[in-house]
Simulated assay, not measured.
Amino acid sequence: DAYPFDAGLVRLDDETSVLELFHGPTCAFKDFGARFMARVMSYFNRNADRRLHILVATSGDTGSAVGSAFYQVPGLDVTILYPAGKISPLQEKQLSTFDGNIRALKISGTFDDCQKLVKTAFTDDSLRAALRLSSANSINISRLLPQSFYYIHSSLALRAALAAEGKANDVVIMVVPSGNFGNLTSGLIAR
Rank of each mutant, 00 (worst) to 15 (best):
56 V>Q: 05
16 T>R: 10
129 A>T: 11
136 A>D: 09
54 I>L: 10
166 G>S: 03
26 T>N: 04
141 I>P: 02
124 D>M: 06
120 T>C: 07
188 L>A: 11
71 Y>H: 12
125 D>A: 13
106 K>W: 07
143 R>S: 12
37 M>V: 13
24 G>N: 10
129 A>Q: 02
62 T>H: 00
111 F>A: 14
160 A>S: 03
109 G>Y: 01
78 V>M: 04
22 F>W: 06
155 S>Y: 01
149 F>L: 10
136 A>F: 01
70 F>Q: 03
105 L>M: 15
191 R>V: 10
8 G>A: 03
59 S>H: 09
67 G>N: 04
153 H>N: 11
78 V>N: 06
130 A>N: 05
18 V>I: 05
55 L>F: 03
133 L>P: 04
123 T>N: 15
61 D>E: 15
77 D>A: 10
148 S>N: 01
16 T>D: 15
162 L>D: 05
135 S>D: 04
57 A>V: 05
58 T>E: 14
130 A>K: 01
39 R>F: 08
34 A>R: 02
59 S>P: 00
19 L>P: 05
1 D>R: 11
87 I>N: 00
122 F>W: 02
105 L>K: 14
70 F>H: 02
36 F>N: 08
21 L>W: 04
172 V>R: 06
27 C>Y: 14
1 D>W: 07
77 D>W: 01
27 C>I: 08
122 F>C: 07
120 T>K: 12
40 V>T: 12
11 R>E: 13
173 I>F: 03
174 M>G: 01
141 I>A: 14
139 I>M: 03
117 L>N: 08
57 A>K: 00
123 T>Q: 11
102 I>L: 09
154 S>L: 02
